[in-house]
Amino acid sequence: MIEPWAESGALYGWILAMGILVGVSCGLVGNYLLLRRMALVGDAISHSVLPGLVVAFMLTHSRNIPAMFAGALVAGLITVGLIEFIHKKSRVKPDAAICIAFTTLFALGVVMTSLIDKGGLHIDAECILYGEIAFVPLEPPVEWFGIAIGPQPVLLMAGVALAVVGLSVVFYKELLVSSFDPGLTTSLGFNAAALHYGLMAVLSVVVVSAFEAVGAVMVVAMLIIPGMTAAQLSSRLPVRHGLVVVHSGISSLAGLHLSVWLNCSTAGAMVVMGALLFVLAWLFSPSDGLVWRWRRRGSDGSGEEGTVASPGGKV
């Protein structure tokens, strides 16, 4: 169990730190996405930041971090705008509009990556899908006053996580109200549209900084699985925020061990462990775990849970 730590503790320490930071910043944003029923907008943006990244790279010919953030922001907002455009200007439903918008942008990004000169760009097909969290510690460390602090991606992610935590503290009230009751938000004098686009902008930044580590598809998992697990355990938003942090800690650590054991992708293993935690919460949540509901129903036979439509071997 302690084998990886004994071998090269620093290496795994940085991977673990990266996993937790990605999990925390994605999970906090994801809580709001889930409340707003926008989980799949997260899916869309996580795919469509790719062309933004590639264009930023083509313009600067280097991995310029502000440029990449700007590219991702623009791509994210274009995605949201495109979805609204297709949905409003035609009779295509929003779900199909989401699908069309992000697949188009993602395909554009993939074609561009295979066309441009890849010197120095760490985006290839593998990275887009799997992420390279295992290579994070190998990045050149950042030095402040001659002291090596840590690998650059981890520090960047730490900054993003701090910003997300800060923003969700500062705008807690606004986000809470607008997530539950958009009408009330407007009547209280908050700008609901600005909050929406602000959240989308933060989402784009979080997604792009997590992109390299976990890849396009698994960012979705990082966004929604912690929040879904937390929602199984509590219906209070502050508690959910806390649970998201716990979830990302456990799933990162367990995932790291799983990946060493199976010799497989670290990011994938972290997500698998996160999904496993959700299944556990689904089954054994103290408030509405499936197991308790089945047992209660089996004992008194009243069948009071109308929501349980078809329990059975589905799990």
Binding site: S259, M270, A275
Partner: peptide, 20 residues
């Protein structure tokens, strides 16, 4: 949406683990 996202991401991650 959350249910679809969960299946999408969790199954894909399991697939990535197996493929790697």
């Amino acid at each position: 949406d959350a249910a679809l996202g969960f299946v999408l991401a969790a199954f894909f991650a399991a697939g990535v683990c197996l493929l790697t």
